[in-house]
Simulated assay, not measured.
Amino acid sequence: MPEEDNDDTRFEDSLEELEQIVKQLENGDLTLDESLETFEYGIKLVQKCNSKINMAEKKIEELIEENSELKTKQFTEFDD
């Protein structure tokens, strides 16, 4: 049974849990009901990860200011 969803979970932990879910589903050892429940939980984790990514993008946009005007830059522009 998947762990209960927690808003304090780190993005990396959620991503690792998603990888485990994929492995479980690929193994085919789960019953149909277990597979559906696990898949549903995985979808919730994906949505949570997407939300965290969107929040991070907004924060980056807010932090990149020049002359008191917001300037949005693509992530590729941050390469070393």
Rank of each mutant, 00 (worst) to 15 (best):
E3S: 14
I43A: 06
N54W: 15
I64Q: 07
V46E: 04
M55Y: 14
E3N: 11
K23M: 13
L63T: 03
E19V: 08
K44V: 05
E34A: 11
T9G: 01
E26H: 12
L32H: 11
Y41I: 02
D5V: 12
K48V: 00
K58S: 08
E61W: 10
E40L: 07
D80A: 05
T76S: 15
F11R: 01
G42A: 13
Q74A: 07
V22K: 15
E66Q: 15
D80I: 03
T76Q: 10
E37K: 01
D79C: 05
S14E: 07
T72C: 08
T72K: 14
E69V: 11
A56Y: 13
L32Q: 14
F11W: 04
E12T: 09
E77H: 00
E37W: 02
D7Q: 10
F75T: 05
D7R: 03
N54E: 14
I43S: 05
E16W: 08
A56W: 11
T72A: 09
E3P: 02
K44P: 02
K52D: 03
L30G: 02
I43K: 06
E69W: 06
F75K: 05
T76M: 09
E19C: 13
N27S: 12
S14A: 08
E65G: 01
K44G: 03
Q74Y: 10
E34R: 04
N6F: 07
T9A: 08
C49V: 14
Y41K: 01
E4K: 15
K73Q: 04
K52L: 03
L25Y: 02
T9I: 05
E17S: 04
T76D: 11
K59N: 12
L70C: 01
E37M: 04
N67D: 14
V22G: 06
M1W: 14
V22L: 14
E16Q: 13
N50Q: 13
Q24D: 14
E37H: 01
L18P: 02
Y41F: 09
L45N: 00
I21Q: 00
T9F: 00
Q74W: 06
E77Q: 02
M1T: 11
D5E: 15
A56I: 09
V22F: 14
N27W: 09
L25Q: 02
N6S: 08
I60Q: 10
D5M: 15
P2A: 06
G42S: 12
M1H: 13
F39H: 07
K58I: 04
L63D: 06
Q20L: 10
G28K: 09
E40H: 06
E17L: 04
L25C: 02
T38W: 06
S35I: 01
F39K: 02
I64Y: 09
F11G: 00
I21H: 01
K23R: 15
E62C: 05
L30R: 02
